[in-house]
């Protein structure tokens, strides 16, 4: 199985350790992982702003970088959702369709494709609360949604429950968007920051020492808000916990 490692621009620039953890974790399961050097971004910032035409060349570059792999795996539900569901600027050639269908978010790849049943190396003796990125949740359906009448499930919780010592706690509004919203975070900064601060307070009140998520962009925003409020909560990507980080 050959996997193309998709490291979103935020992760590349701000959280290289998430890219490293994702890479190492996949390798622990014997997956052959390539990192295409020429990757930049999935095109979401432009599309998110309505500028689909402006994201065409970026999306075409993405396809050139990642065509031919059995799977493309990235540690970001938001970016993966963009590739899978909103990647409509390029002409929908076989290559494009194949890349879109084969692109997976890390948690769903571990859960659905590798069907991982243990992380023997992982131990995280902390109280943790999980934040699901809205696109991962409502676009990729990595967990059941509180708005719908459906059977409860959570792929990230299934994985986290296999980590020794980890105690999951819940917050009062688990499904509520944290306000990052891509370019919303800069164009509508006041509402965005307020939502993030409310989220950070909710997380802090839950008693969690750590917040984890399969999406770095939400974490980066929430961490910035928590710091502004001088809250002690720490933020860590799920790939790091699953890869054996202790703190």
């Amino acid at each position: 199985m050959r996997v193309g490692l998709f490291v979103p621009c935020y992760v590349d620039a701000f959280h290289p350790e998430v890219g490293q953890a994702t890479l190492e974790l996949l390798e622990r399961f014997g997956v052959e992982v390539d990192y295409p050097f020429d990757q930049t971004c999935c095109g979401q910032p432009m599309t998110n702003t309505g500028c689909h035409e402006e994201s065409r060349a970026t999306e075409e570059l993405f396809v050139r970088n990642f065509s031919g792999y059995d799977y493309i795996v990235g540690p970001s539900g938001s970016c993966v959702n963009h590739v899978r569901h909103n990647f409509d600027a390029p002409e929908q050639t076989d290559d494009v369709r194949q890349v879109r269908a084969r692109t997976y978010e890390l948690v769903e790849f571990l859960h659905d494709i590798l069907k991982v049943d243990a992380f023997p190396w992982a131990e995280f003796p902390h109280k943790v609360t999980l934040h699901n990125n809205c696109n991962a949740l409502r676009g990729l359906n990595i967990a059941s949604m509180t708005e719908l009448r459906e059977k409860q499930y959570s792929k990230p919780c299934d994985l986290l429950e296999k980590v020794k010592g980890l105690e999951l706690v819940t917050i009062t509004r688990p499904d509520e968007c944290c306000g990052f919203g891509g370019t919303f975070s800069v164009f509508e900064e006041a509402v965005s920051a307020r939502m993030g601060q409310d989220k950070a307070r909710d997380q802090s009140r839950s008693g969690a020492e750590y917040v984890t998520s399969s999406d770095s962009s939400c974490l980066m925003h929430q961490e910035g808000c928590a710091k502004r409020l001088h809250l002690p909560t720490k933020y860590i990507h799920i790939s790091q916990i699953l890869n054996g980080a202790r703190a």
Binding site: F14, Q20, G224, C225, R228
Partner: peptide
């Protein structure tokens, strides 16, 4: 730069993933 009005900037790593790789 509107980011920092209600939030702190993220911690800056010494190298990008790309450089590390």
């Amino acid at each position: 730069n509107t980011w920092t009005r209600g939030r702190e900037m993220p911690h800056v790593p010494k190298e990008t993933f790309h450089q590390w790789y």
